[in-house]
Design a protein around this nucleic acid. Structure first.
Length: 123
DNA sequence: ATCATGACTCCGA
DNA sequence: ATCGGAGCCATGA
């Protein structure tokens, strides 16, 4: 089930899936956003976008990780489903880094545009 | 070991 | 545009 938000965090030792995802999130350039799929893929799980979301969900409140740079596909703030308030914080932080949002609350960046172009059915 | 769940994504209707 | 179902992975009980 859901990991505890605080207390027993055994991710101190690197090598776990969470640590890998966190490492990727941490290396997201400022003023840039990455999708859960991107983060998971770079962490070593190209087909487990849920892991990215799951790992971020386990993040403590005072996490130094730039979790706000992680958005859903197309720049959507999936966080809004779980915590609307948190989504506002994320949006505020991203705007502070120079990112823009459209009327629907989607992030507008030149990086996500290439994401949609690679979609295609296999064989 | 198994079962259920999730800040996801994709595809079809 | 919205709605629903299927697939994938690791974690906790």
């Amino acid at each position: 089930m859901r990991p505890r938000k605080s207390g027993d965090v055994r991710m101190g030792a690197i090598g776990t899936a969470y640590s890998r995802i966190y490492a990727v999130v941490r290396r997201i350039p400022r003023g840039t956003v990455a999708t859960y799929g991107e983060v998971a893929a770079k962490a070593g799980y190209p087909h487990a976008p849920r892991l990215a979301g799951y790992a971020l969900y386990a993040l403590p409140e005072g996490t130094p990780l730039p979790w706000h740079r992680v958005v859903g596909a197309g720049g959507r703030l999936s966080l809004a489903r779980l915590s609307p308030d948190g989504a506002l914080t994320q949006r505020m932080r991203l705007e502070r880094e120079g990112l823009k949002f459209d009327a629907r609350g989607r992030v507008v960046t030149g990086r996500l545009k290439s994401l949609r172009a690679s979609k295609k059915k296999s064989s």
